[in-house]
Nucleic acid binder design. Structure first.
Lengths: 236, 236
DNA sequence: CGCGTCCAGTACGATTCCGGACAAAGGCGC
DNA sequence: GCGCCTTTGTCCGGAATCGTACTGGACGCG
C-alpha cells in the first residue's frame, strides 16, 4: 500500500500522535470504505479492527429487543473500537455508518501491541475515551432536560462538526431513531428550525444556514462535550 | 497504616487485581471516610486522588447552569477518578457522595506510575471504564424509552447492587434530581412500586422487598450494563 | 416538649410528546 | 412517461410529565 503521510490525514487522532507512534501504526493501517447502514461493529461480536475515520459518520447505538437509541457520534475527530483500548474485544453496543466515508483500519492485535509499547499512544487514545464519556454524558443531560427542537439542533451541530460540511445527508426517520423520538416529531421540529432560518430542509438532507443560531437554540445541550475535546486535542 | 489484605477488601476492582499489582498499589492506599453530599471530584478541578469505594455510593453528575443529571453510579464495584486512567487530570463532571461510606484512596501520581508499570493493571481498570461507558449508555436508553416508574425501579436496583443492602437511604428529592424529573413524579412512582409490594417507602429511605419484581418492572432498562460488568469481572 | 426544618403527599391546569394513521410529493427504475 | 417506493407533511385523541403551590407529618434540636 502507498506510504501514509501523517500530515495528509484528516483523522484528528492520528494527527495528534507523535511521529514515532504514527510510524508504529502506519504499516498496519489500511484504507477502508464505509457505506451507509453498514455495521462496523456488531454488539457482542469480537471486534476485529479499530477504525480511524477519515470521512463519514458513525453512530454508537445501544439497541435491545424494545428499542434503539444513539449514545454517541463519531467522525474524523475520533475512532471506532474503543473497547479494544479498554482491554476487551467486544461490547453490547453497535457502531453503524450514518454517512458514507472512508476509514483507516487496523487489526485489533496490532493496535493492542502498539498500545502496550507506547505510553504516549495510550495517552492520546485514552483522552479520546474521556471525550467520548463526556459526549455520552451530555446526551443523558440533553435527553433529560431539553425538548426535541433543542436536541435536534444539538444533533445537527454535532453532525456538522464531524462531517465538516454544511449539507448533511439525513432523513427524518434517521434523526428520529437517533434522538429516540417519533418521526413526525422531527418533521415538526425541523420546521421550527427552518422557520427561523437556522437550517434549510430538503428531501433527505439538511443544510445548515446559521450555525451560531443553532448554538443559541441548543443552549447548554451543546458545548460541554465539544469544549472537552478542544481542551484535550485543541492544540494537536 | 495497617497492612491491607487483599482478600479482606470489599472493593471488587482491588479484589480483581493480580497479587503483584495489588502489592504495587497497597502502600499508597489510605482509608478515607466519605460523607453525604461531599464532592470527591469537582468539575474542571485537578483530581488529586482516585477512590476505590469500600462502602457507600457516589454519583457522577453532569451539571450546567440550567440543571444537573446523574450519568453514572459508583459503589464498591468501581472507582472514582476514571479521567486519571485516561490521561487527563480533570473532567467536566462532578462526583458526589450519595450515601456515607469509606474508600481507599491513592494519589494521582502514584496511580499513574503504577499504570505505566503494569499492563495487567491497565487491563483491569480499562475494563472498568468499559463497564462505565455501557452504564452511561444504558442511562441514555432508559431516559429515552422508559417512563418514570421503570427508571425508578432501575435506579433502585442499581443502588441496591452497589450498597449491598435492602434499605437505601434516599429522599424523593434526591431521586428526582438523579433521574432528572420532578420531585412529585418520584412520589407518585414510588407509590406505584409500593402498591405492588415491590418496595416499602419510609421517610428518607426505600426498602427493597421484591427484587425480582423490580427487575420485571424495569424491563430492559436494567440488565445490559450489569451483564457487561459480570462478563468482565464475574470470575474475579 | 414545643418549634422549626426537612420531607412526603396531593392537586390542577398547561404542555409536550406519543401512537397511529393517512395523504401528498419527490425521485428512481423501467 | 408511468408506476412504485421512499420520504415528508398533517391530523387527532390521549397519555405522560411538567410547573407550581400548598398541606400535613416526621424528626431533630434546644
Amino acid at each position: 500500500m502507498p506510504q501514509l503521510r501523517q500530515s495528509a490525514l484528516r483523522n484528528r487522532l492520528l494527527a495528534a500522535l507523535t511521529a514515532e507512534d504514527f510510524a508504529r501504526l502506519a504499516p498496519h493501517l489500511a484504507e477502508t470504505p464505509m457505506t451507509i447502514r453498514e455495521c462496523v461493529i456488531t454488539s457482542d461480536q469480537p471486534i476485529a479492527h479499530a477504525y480511524f475515520l477519515e470521512d463519514g459518520l458513525v453512530s454508537l447505538i445501544a439497541d435491545t429487543r424494545e428499542g434503539r437509541v444513539e449514545i454517541g457520534l463519531v467522525g474524523r475527530e475520533g475512532m471506532i473500537g474503543v473497547p479494544l483500548l479498554l482491554g476487551t474485544d467486544r461490547t453490547p453496543h453497535n457502531a453503524m455508518v450514518q454517512a458514507d466515508g472512508t476509514a483507516l483500519r487496523i487489526a485489533a492485535a496490532e493496535l493492542c501491541a502498539a498500545l502496550d509499547a507506547s505510553a504516549a499512544l495510550r495517552g492520546v487514545l485514552g483522552r479520546y475515551v474521556q471525550t467520548l464519556i463526556v459526549q455520552v454524558g451530555q446526551t443523558v443531560y440533553a435527553n433529560a432536560d431539553y425538548n426535541i427542537e433543542a436536541r435536534l439542533a444539538r444533533w445537527i451541530l454535532m453532525t456538522q462538526d464531524r462531517l465538516g460540511r454544511d449539507e448533511l445527508p439525513i432523513t427524518h426517520d434517521f434523526m428520529a431513531m437517533m434522538l429516540g423520538v417519533r418521526r413526525p416529531g422531527v418533521t415538526t421540529a425541523l420546521h421550527i428550525l427552518e422557520g427561523t432560518r437556522l437550517i434549510q430542509a430538503k428531501r433527505g438532507r439538511v443544510i445548515v444556514l446559521d450555525r451560531a443560531g443553532l448554538m443559541d437554540f441548543a443552549s447548554d445541550s451543546y458545548g460541554p462535550a465539544e469544549a472537552e475535546y478542544e481542551r484535550l486535542f485543541g492544540e494537536g
